[in-house]
Write a protein that binds this DNA or RNA. Structure first.
Length: 602
RNA sequence: GGUCCUGUGGAGCAGUUGGAGUGCUCGCCGCCCUGUCAAGGCGGAGGUCGCGGGUUCAAGUCCCGUCAGGACCGCCA
């Protein structure tokens, strides 16, 4: 090593020893006759003092990479810096070697200055010299280690699966890779290792996990990148409760070690239908109340067309209360209409209860009968001074989701969110199917998800109500993981495919290899995958997963650092076989009554 | 694909009813400075106000288009 000590580790006890440090000039304070330099390495910062005979130190600039030898000394009385772990000492330099110089910086390496995303990402290596971004990446490493420890303690096997594979039946668009050796054919990058982990269960591995990179070619969000990471887990001979117990063990370990939070176990469970009814979301944020109230029955018979239309159509009318919302200005209340329209709703009906008299006011109030108005406050749990927002739709879920979004917005605007709180829950008993919009059904989770025992023999009778052994774990309104018990019985799988309109031929074409494997004694199995970027984002206290990814992309899929993606050369294009047409499949030998072509082998 | 926000020396910002590239903090260059710790003082350099078009006597400012970054909707089992 070209250094003897870590800069951040020096303490008063080291006084008197000669040390050699290597690191970067974090800051310099040049007084002419004496120069102070904060020397930073991965461990932290120590103050180095250069005296008159060390004139070369005048030439140091921020982020020069240097090696310094000197004596550790206690700082003169009164000059200690209690803000720094190394604040009691300083290094009196006797030699200075500039290992490399730094050009003027395109962004300040300073924890107090936050640059724009494009500059930060273009110079991510400089961005990561800052304490907070660096800490997030280091924290993620710890999270990986903690998860591995929990899983290894439980005899899990870490197994890597291919990233050049064939398309698997998740719903997202695939990233495709042309295949030079077979022009016209393409690999897909995996959207998840779903099928491989099920094959590993067939193979008798029994307990698999992987920190797996996954790829989905969809639009980005603050919590979505085109390549992302899952902590992917699958287990044999288990029930839903076993997977949930394991998930809780992992979450408790992570939050216990990295967030100093004791996660209450068992983590509360809520059914998917209750979550929608009470919170208008399948990933409810339980850090605050503000629950939804269904008013379909209460308002039955109303003459207000918006509500009556939904009720007559067999739909839903509901409300959510904004505590203190009656004090909003007309402009603020109008703002809610814009908010709702931005979400694709027609508007957001509201009634405010006068803070003094409790009288219901607002545009909707005059459309409701005196009887409906009189009992409204009690029906929705509103007090004088509150505002009540309504949503109505023929589709129950549509109205609930609007109210759920309003609930979140209310909590934000009314300051009801405790930013220091952690609220976990499992959302269980998810529906198996949802309408595909064309008269058929599509799998809510994926087509290998098992119906619950209650529904396994009759899910065809009411696909809209059939429930699955599918579960999501939610933290502060973020879905941080989800999984299911899988189907291991061929007859059940066939019936699910039938309902989904997947023909045996189509099934064989898409994932025949899995069905083939399931002929040979597949064990009952199930699993879970954690959205690892989101988990780390929450643990890091960040508001974007970009903060916990070393080299993230911008929302356009662009990497400002490398400039990827780029066009390819004509030669690359020709070699990759991007433009090749796939050969028609050769008939099997003998099936056409003609000799099959035989290729020369070497 | 849609809605919204942002774009001003290297970084972060301010810029009023349209009136001279105006200002602030940091950084950069030079000089001074022996106890600072986001050191301080003096001086200096650095600009296609993202880009293109329009309105106007006059545009950083208003309008249209476009590019880039961000938030959301659609999409993402």
């Amino acid at each position: 090593m070209i250094r003897t000590h870590a800069a951040g580790a020096l303490r008063a006890a080291d006084a008197g020893s000669t040390v050699t440090l290597a690191g970067w000039v974090a800051r310099r304070r040049d007084h002419g006759g004496v120069i102070f330099v904060d020397l930073r390495d991965a461990s932290g910062v120590s103050q180095v003092v250069f005296r008159e005979e060390m004139a070369a130190a005048h030439a140091l600039r921020n982020e020069f990479c240097v090696r310094v030898t000197g004596t550790v000394e206690g700082r003169p009385a009164g000059n200690e810096n209690p803000e720094l772990p190394t604040g009691e000492i300083e290094v009196n330099a006797s030699s200075l070697e500039v290992l490399s110089e730094a050009a003027p910086l395109p962004l300040p390496v300073d924890d107090n200055v936050d640059a724009g995303d494009d500059v930060r990402l273009r110079y991510r290596y400089l961005d990561l010299r800052r304490a907070t971004p660096a800490a997030s990446i280091r924290m993620r490493s710890q999270a990986n280690q903690l998860a591995r420890r929990v899983l290894h303690d439980r005899d899990f096997v870490e197994i890597e699966t291919p990233t050049l594979t064939r398309s698997t039946p998740e719903g997202a668009r695939d990233f495709l890779v042309p295949v030079r050796l077979q022009p016209g054919t393409w690999y897909a990058l995996p959207q998840s290792p779903q099928l491989f982990k099920q094959l590993l269960m067939v193979s008798g591995m029994e307990r698999y996990y992987q920190i797996a990179r996954c790829y989905r070619d969809e639009d980005f969000r603050a919590d979505r990148q085109p390549e992302f990471t899952q902590l992917d887990i699958e287990m044999s001979f288990i029930t839903q409760d076993d997977v949930i117990e394991l998930g809780e063990a992992i979450v408790a370990e992570l939050w216990g070690e990295l967030a100093e939070t004791e996660v209450p176990r068992p983590i509360p469970r809520i059914t998917w239908h209750d979550a929608m009814a009470r919170y208008g979301s399948d990933k409810p944020d339980l850090r605050y109340g503000v629950e939804l109230t269904e008013l379909t029955d209460y308002l039955r018979g109303t003459e207000f067309r918006v509500f009556a239309g939904a009720i007559d159509a067999g739909g839903y009318v509901g409300a959510v209360v904004m505590p203190g919302g009656a004090s909003q200005t007309r402009k603020e209340l109008d703002g809610w209409q814009d908010w709702a329209k931005a979400r694709g709703a027609r508007g957001l009906a509201y009634v405010v209860l006068d803070a003094e008299t409790g009288e219901a006011r607002g545009p909707v109030a005059k459309n409701l009968s005196a009887a409906h108005l009189a009992g409204l406050g009690d029906a929705v749990g509103a007090k004088p001074g509150d505002a009540i927002f309504f949503a109505a739709a023929a589709e129950r879920r549509e109205a609930q989701e609007l109210l759920g979004a309003a609930r979140q917005e209310i909590a934000k605007r009314a300051g009801l969110i405790d930013e220091n709180a952690w609220a976990f829950c499992w959302v269980v008993d998810a529906p198996m199917f949802e309408p595909d919009g064309e008269g058929g059904w599509t799998a809510v989770h994926h087509p290998f998800t098992s119906p619950t025992d209650e529904w396994v023999d009759r899910f065809e009778q009411a696909p809209d109500r059939a429930l699955a052994y599918a579960y999501d774990i939610v933290c502060n309104g973020n879905e941080i993981g989800g999984g299911s018990v899988r189907i291991h019985r061929a007859d059940v799988q066939r019936r699910v495919f039938d309902l989904l309109g997947i023909s045996p031929e189509e099934a064989a074409d898409k994932f025949g290899f899995l069905l083939e494997a399931f002929k040979y004694g597949p064990p009952p199995h199930g699993g879970i995958a954690f959205g690892w970027d989101r988990v780390c984002m929450l643990l890091a206290g960040a508001d974007s997963i970009r903060e916990v990814i070393a080299f993230p992309k911008t929302r356009g899929g662009f990497d400002p650092l490398t400039g990827a993606p780029t066009p390819i050369t004509a030669q690359q294009r020709a070699e990759a076989g991007v433009d090749a047409k796939p050969k028609p499949p050769a008939p099997a030998a003998g099936t056409t009554g003609e000799a099959a072509p035989v290729e020369m082998t070497r």
